[in-house]
Structure formats: structure tokens, C-alpha cells
């Protein structure tokens, strides 16, 4: 797979050197071993030369040469890596927000997207933010990966050198839908990117269903709450408005009606009234991410999905 970022050349050079030396040693060791076993098999060579017990000279040779070689490998590994921790000051800052189990990218002007959209040949610096557990942002074609750790500032940067759409994975196991926590990096030319930055969120790539849908999509709610009645790890948004739900409150079962207050409480205190049959502790509080205005949009959205539709 060919590389598509400024780091690909250095990383791939390290791969060629390490895998080249390794392949040489593997073939040499295996061939020698097989040759000795055939050449000195008992039927052809019945008397072992018991006088051989070692050789200082050989030990030195096969200590010193590998030591030099591994230091060479270390050097190329370091050389390919060092620029990854030296982001240029003029890099375009983008917040990469990870949550179970989706990505959101927030740009300087406040625009958000669920794909990472960047201009070609411009350095981009990602501020890595996790709202729940550890994730890891991985773009194989760019040869970059860095963990996204809750409560810690971490960053990564790159310059995309090819146009196109490249897979972006979560590489650190983060629970149920870890393998679905993927999106793409779209590399476009700079004028196109500038244009895109000016369009309000939702008017281009992003859907145009409703403000509320935008909010639940942007905040990753849809990774667990479906909009079509499918039961994921949390209840679907579809057909719940006005329904009676059995919930656990401090270990005792109660019944609540799904209304505006219940939705508001569930976004801010997800574990206070947990629907029976679902796990506690999976959903973080969105107190700092979703404001009152956005909650109203969510309420409207859930309403729009119908009451007792099932």
C-alpha cells in the first residue's frame, strides 16, 4: 500500500531496511540449519565431533555484528519517527474528538464534521480529545497513529501528499462497536477546502434531516442509539416518545414516561434512570458537550420519530 503523507517515505525506508536485514537473517539461519541437519544426519555422519564446545571468536562476531545492525535499525526507526513529534507552527489546527464509537472533527471556525476533511500539501495538527475511554487514531495510508486518551493532551500532525479518500480507524480497543469506529480522511485541494469550511455544517456532506439529527450524529449518539428501531447497546430513538419505560433508580425498578424532562435527564445523567436490560456506565454525561438549545433539538427529533410506532 503506497503512502500518502509526508511521513510515508521515512517510515517505509525503515520498513525496507528492517525487513530486508531480517529476511536475510531468517533465510541464512534457516538454510544453515537445514543444511546441517541434512549434511550431518546420523546415517551419513555417525560420529559427532565432540571436541567442539564453543568459540570465543564466533561469539564475538555474532554479538558485535548484530549489535551494529540493530543500532542501524534503531536509527532509521528514530529518523522516520522524529518528525512526527515536531508539528510546524503554521499547521491547521483541528480537534479530533473520539467517543464510543465515533469520530467528530472540529475546525478552527467551529465547523464540525464526521469525516476529516483536509487540504493537500498543508500541515494539519490534530488535537486528540477523548470523552470516555482510550481510542487511537490510525490512518494506515499516512503511516500515523496516536492514542486518544481521556484527560490527557495529546496531538499528532501530518501533511497529506495525495488526493483521495483514506481509511481512518480506531486502533485501541474501546468496547462493543470498536471495529465500526471508522471514517475517512478526504484530501481535497485548498480552494475546495476553503469553500467547504465556509458552508454551514450539514449543508454539504452532512445530512440535512433535522437540527436534532445533526446533534445526535455530531455527538456520536447514533453509534449506540439507532433511529430505525434497531436495538444496539442502548434503546433506539424510534417510537419511544410518550412510551412507558421500566427503569432502574438506585437499584429499584420504576416506570417513567419518555418526555422532555426524561430525555434531558438521560443526556446529562445517563445512569440515573437506566432502562431495564441495558448496561450502566457505558454512556458518559454530555453535560459539557450538549447545550440546552441542542437538547431541545434532540427532543424534537425523538418526537419526530413517532410515538409507540412499534
Amino acid at each position: 500500500m503506497s503512502g500518502a503523507s509526508n511521513f510515508a517515505e521515512g517510515v517505509d525506508l525503515a520498513f525496507y531496511i528492517i525487513i530486508g536485514i531480517s529476511t536475510f537473517f531468517l533465510v541464512a539461519i534457516t538454510a544453515t540449519m537445514v543444511y546441517f541437519v541434512i549434511r550431518y544426519r546420523k546415517s551419513k555422519h555417525p560420529h559427532a565431533d565432540t571436541s567442539i564446545t564453543g568459540s570465543i571468536k564466533l561469539e564475538l562476531i555474532w554479538t558485535i555484528i548484530p549489535t551494529i545492525l540493530v543500532l542501524v535499525m534503531f536509527y532509521y526507526g528514530w529518523a522516520g519517527f522524529a518528525p512526527m513529534r515536531a508539528a510546524p507552527a503554521d499547521a491547521i489546527p483541528v480537534k479530533a474528538i473520539a467517543r464510543m464509537w465515533s469520530w467528530t472533527f472540529e475546525y478552527e471556525n467551529g465547523k464540525k464534521s464526521d469525516k476529516l476533511i483536509v487540504p493537500k500539501d498543508k500541515p494539519v495538527r490534530l488535537e486528540l480529545i477523548s470523552v470516555d475511554v482510550i481510542h487511537s487514531l490510525y490512518v494506515p495510508a499516512f503511516r500515523i497513529k496516536e492514542d486518544v486518551i481521556p484527560g490527557r493532551d495529546n496531538y499528532m500532525w501530518f501533511t497529506a501528499t495525495e488526493y483521495g479518500s483514506f481509511d481512518l480507524f480506531c486502533a485501541e480497543y474501546c468496547g462493543l462497536r470498536h471495529s465500526y469506529m471508522l471514517t475517512t480522511v478526504e484530501v481535497v485541494d485548498e480552494p475546495q477546502w476553503q469553500e467547504w469550511m465556509k458552508t454551514p455544517a450539514g449543508d454539504s456532506e452532512l445530512d440535512k434531516v433535522s437540527e436534532g439529527f445533526n446533534v445526535v450524529k455530531m455527538n456520536g449518539c447514533v453509534a449506540c442509539h439507532s433511529s430505525d428501531g434497531t436495538k444496539l447497546v442502548a434503546s433506539s430513538f424510534k417510537g419511544i416518545w410518550g412510551e412507558q419505560h421500566k427503569v432502574m433508580v438506585n437499584g429499584t425498578e420504576q416506570t417513567v414516561t419518555v418526555d422532555a424532562d426524561y430525555i434531558r435527564e438521560s443526556v446529562y445523567e445517563p445512569n440515573a434512570k437506566l432502562v431495564v436490560g441495558f448496561n450502566a456506565g457505558l454512556m458518559p454525561s454530555y453535560k459539557d458537550q450538549i447545550n440546552d438549545q441542542e437538547i431541545e433539538h434532540i427532543i424534537e427529533y425523538i418526537k419526530s420519530l413517532g410515538a409507540n410506532a412499534e
Binding site: I18, L26, I29, F74, G77, G80, S136, E146
Partner: peptide, 23 residues
Amino acid sequence: FAIGGLTGLVVGALATDIHVHDT
């Protein structure tokens, strides 16, 4: 074990580990 050890060099080097870590 030689294959295991030699692939260990790939994950021991910084640049290459960044690519193959957690894969």
C-alpha cells in the same frame, strides 16, 4: 522464534511501530 524475534525488531523501531502498533 526467529520470525517472532525479527518481527519484534519491526515493532521495536519507532517509525515502523507507529504503523503496525495495535494491528
